[in-house]
């Protein structure tokens, strides 16, 4: 197939390993080489063709990937990861979020009381919780469940948590559940990596960047208070709550567990959780158990209270009471 070209050496593209080759073979080799080069370039595109912004995202994400558990971070490390997370939110989603690392106030232990006589099942708390905590809109994640119970009945298995009719219904009362922030939480014991723990003010939190998604905590919780992200949570940018806490309502990832934190970004600043603030009937009481003048202490002292599954000795800091 090779034939000598008259008039000088062959052109460079028509040689293979120093030997002159024919046009057909040369074209074939050339085509193969170009295709391979293109594939290689595509495979290595972050190294070759990334923009400045992509490079920054890649470096920030890598630093985030190798950081430690929040529980053991120093204040400087916390500040660094906050800077990275806020920068990532700006680069990836174009939102200006403010992530706080507010610590627990000394002498504060949060307690919650729920008046089953007052709750009418309006579910404004659920709405406020979704908006406040940036819950996944796509999977319709909800921390709060409102059970419609028949009067005289206390079995939650027989209750309806998906009512859509006008409330309050005749002959029914309403009982809401969420994370009870147990004093002896079984969910934190079973975590194999220490990604969930109880804070000094009683709030059980999750480090979303340390969670491996094994869901042991979900199996351990007797109240079904934890939620798993099967997907990357989707929140419309215009509805995103930019006031966030590292252990609370910041962006979660796919494959991690999340839970109610009594709105840790609000309650640690002296504000009420969103569910308490949204309740139109005043059925929810929130306060400091160590303050003898607090409303929660008054309720515990003067009302008949009960808790769910007390025989499990998880000691929830969440009481139900009646008028």
């Amino acid at each position: 197939m090779s034939e000598e070209r008259p008039g000088g050496p062959p052109p460079p593209e028509a040689t293979l390993l120093g030997k002159p080759v024919g046009r057909r073979i040369a074209l074939k080799v050339l085509a193969t080489g170009v295709a391979a080069a293109t594939q290689a370039a595509a495979a290595c595109s972050p190294l070759t063709a990334e923009t400045e912004q992509e490079r920054e995202v890649r470096l920030l994400a890598w630093r985030e990937y190798i950081k430690g558990n929040y529980h053991f971070m120093t204040d400087e490390e916390k500040a660094e990861t906050i800077n990275r997370l806020e920068r990532l939110a700006k680069l990836q989603r174009g939102v200006d979020v403010k992530i706080q690392t507010t610590k627990a106030q000394p002498g504060v232990l949060f307690g919650y009381a729920f008046n089953i006589s007052k709750c009418k099942g309006f579910r404004r708390c659920v709405e406020a919780c979704i908006n406040e905590n940036n819950l996944d809109r796509r999977a319709a994640t909800q921390y709060i469940r409102i059970f419609e119970m028949e009067e005289g009945e206390i079995d939650l298995d027989l209750a309806d948590a998906s009512f859509e009719h006008e409330v309050p219904a005749e002959g029914h009362f309403y009982l809401g559940t969420q994370c009870f922030q147990c004093a002896d939480p079984p969910c934190t014991r079973v975590c194999p990596v220490g990604a969930t723990w109880q804070e000094p003010d009683g709030i059980v939190v999750v480090d979303y960047d340390w969670c491996i998604g094994c869901r042991y905590c979900m199996a351990a919780c007797p109240y079904w208070a934890r939620r798993f992200n099967w997907y990357e949570p989707e929140v419309p940018v215009e509805e995103l709550n930019p006031n966030q806490h590292y252990l609370g309502n910041r962006a979660r990832k796919k494959g991690v567990v999340e839970k109610c934190t009594f709105c840790i970004h609000r309650s640690r600043q002296g504000r009420l959780p969103a569910c308490v603030e949204a309740c139109p009937t005043g059925a929810r009481v929130f306060g400091n158990l160590l303050d003898p003048d607090s409303e929660i202490r008054w309720v515990l002292a003067h009302k008949k209270v009960f808790r769910l599954k007390e025989d499990l000795k998880t000691e929830p800091r969440f009481w139900y009471f009646t008028d």
Binding site: G270, L272, S294, E295, W298, V299, F321, D323
Partner: peptide, 19 residues
């Protein structure tokens, strides 16, 4: 009874934070 509960904290909605 309702006013007693209201003054104590079991009845009525609190507005301005728990603290």
């Amino acid at each position: 009874a309702q006013v007693a509960a209201w003054a104590g904290g079991a009845h009525g909605k609190r507005l301005d934070g728990w603290q």
